[in-house]
């Protein structure tokens, strides 16, 4: 009883201490700038995880709830290659793209194809798939946390501004910049593939009018398979890049799933620039609000804002007018 009272007192003191500290760090534009610069890192992750999703959702109109698990698979590919062959993280990117892409193609052939035109069923099936993938990975690698080494040459921070004492006031780690670079590169690559190749033209025509493309001789089922595999491959790359930020574990993909979806529905899937805009809006508003209030509140506000946004712009902010 007495011990309890003391404990409660201690807790109280701790609370007051925290409150004071919070009051001390009052609004400062430099700290806000730092927060926003670091928000770019979040933007990179959102872009990376949302890109694959945007492509599969845009072309096939399917809800892939197993996207997080493909991210997880990519991370495990990197883990296996790194622990067995001591490969550099950068060198594992092509492997994780190919392996997760192949698994994606297999999934499309065996499951997604049977549920064509029933988006809610695909949603359920991919949720089942996500449970299965998690379970299988847990069987093989156990639930233990695994760690992946970041490339040693991408370390340290880029300091943009130092304060009077010489310590960095606005700084961002090189690795986060690297994530942004990879994300932008993949965005550019995807955009090139979509706009400048024959296959890309077919993919775009299927996005706009599936039946008409079929009539004009586009092999839509092949397009579907390649699109899904490509989307999953991108998720794999995202997994590889993210793997060294946190630990690698079977449920790791779940953390990214909801955020990736919010990115995609915010920007819309008709244009790739929508994903970039979605990632930027969500990432930066999250960082900004988190600075003014705190992290959980920022997340709640941003998710609420996305709900309101879907209500008024269900197709996202960047849409193309089309006949349906």
């Amino acid at each position: 009883m007495k011990a309890d009272q003391e404990r409660s007192k201690k807790r109280k003191n701790m609370f007051y201490y925290l409150a004071q500290e919070e009051a001390a760090s009052s609004f400062s534009s430099i700290a806000l700038a730092n927060q926003l610069v670091n928000g770019i890192g979040i933007v990179g992750i959102l872009l990376l995880t949302g890109l694959g999703l945007a492509i599969t959702f845009g072309v096939m109109r399917i809800i892939n709830l197993a996207h997080g698990e493909f991210i997880m698979l990519g991370a495990y590919v990197t883990f296996v290659l790194q622990s067995n062959f001591n490969l550099d993280l950068l060198l594992t990117i092509p492997f994780s793209f190919l392996i997760t892409g192949a698994i994606g193609a297999l999934v499309e052939l065996t499951i997604i194809r049977r549920l064509y035109g029933r988006p809610l069923e695909t949603l359920l099936a991919t949720w089942g798939l996500s449970i299965v993938l998690q379970g299988v990975i847990k069987l093989i690698f156990t639930a233990q946390l695994k760690y992946v080494k970041a490339p040693p040459y991408i370390s340290g921070n880029l300091t943009l501004l130092t304060d009077e004492q010489g310590s960095p006031a606005i700084a961002i780690s090189y690795y986060r910049l690297f994530i942004v670079a990879i994300a932008l590169a993949l965005l550019a690559l995807t955009s090139y593939l979509l706009n400048n190749t024959d296959l890309g033209r077919q993919v775009r025509s299927v996005t706009q009018n599936r039946d008409m493309s079929k009539c004009l001789g586009v092999n839509t089922s092949l397009v579907d398979m390649i699109t899904f595999a490509y989307g999953c491959g991108l998720a794999g790359v995202a997994g590889t890049v993210i793997s060294s930020l946190k630990s690698v574990s079977p449920p790791m993909g779940q953390d990214y799933l909801v955020d990736a979806w919010m990115t995609v529905v915010t920007g819309g899937v008709d244009k790739l620039v929508g994903v970039l805009a979605g990632a930027f809006l969500i990432g930066q508003s999250n960082a900004g609000i988190a600075y003014l209030l705190n992290d959980p509140v920022a997340r709640v506000i941003v998710l609420g804002a996305v709900i309101v946004l879907i209500r008024y712009f269900p197709e996202g902010l960047f849409t193309v007018q089309k006949r349906s």
Binding site: I63, P119, L120, P296, V300, I307, I310, R311, P314
Partner: peptide, 20 residues
């Protein structure tokens, strides 16, 4: 708003309230 988007909204509600 229809079908799939409503489902995504319910996902967001669940996720947001959990955090809250």
């Amino acid at each position: 708003v229809s079908g799939v988007y409503i489902t995504i909204i319910t996902l967001a509600i669940s996720s947001a309230l959990t955090t809250f």
